[in-house]
């Protein structure tokens, strides 16, 4: 999937675990894990808002787009 979720990076920056994050926002650990592993097919604005609030970041910090062609050339 060309949209990459950089949850790992942001968690490390905040020195926080996935379980701690799940405890702070109203999202289950299972769903956060789906998001982290790039298996999610869609993300709600409410989820994005909660993640940005807790991780002190902007939506653009959490998500990035990598074109399949540019990925292949790397």
């Amino acid at each position: 999937m060309p949209v990459i979720v950089k949850l790992d990076e942001l968690l490390a920056r905040q020195n926080m675990t996935l379980t701690q994050l799940a405890g702070r926002i109203d999202i289950t650990l299972a769903n956060l894990s789906i998001l982290k592993t790039g298996k999610a097919r869609a993300i709600r604005f409410g989820t994005l808002e909660a993640l940005c609030r807790e991780l002190k970041c902007q939506p653009g910090d959490l998500l990035s787009f990598a074109d399949d062609d540019s990925k292949a050339s790397k």
């Binding site: 769903n31 956060l32 789906i34 998001l35 298996k39 999610a40 097919r41 869609a42 993300i43 989820t47």
Partner: peptide, 13 residues
Amino acid sequence: QGASMNLDLEGTV
């Protein structure tokens, strides 16, 4: 139709 809408929601976080 409900089933296909449900399928769309699967994987939404």
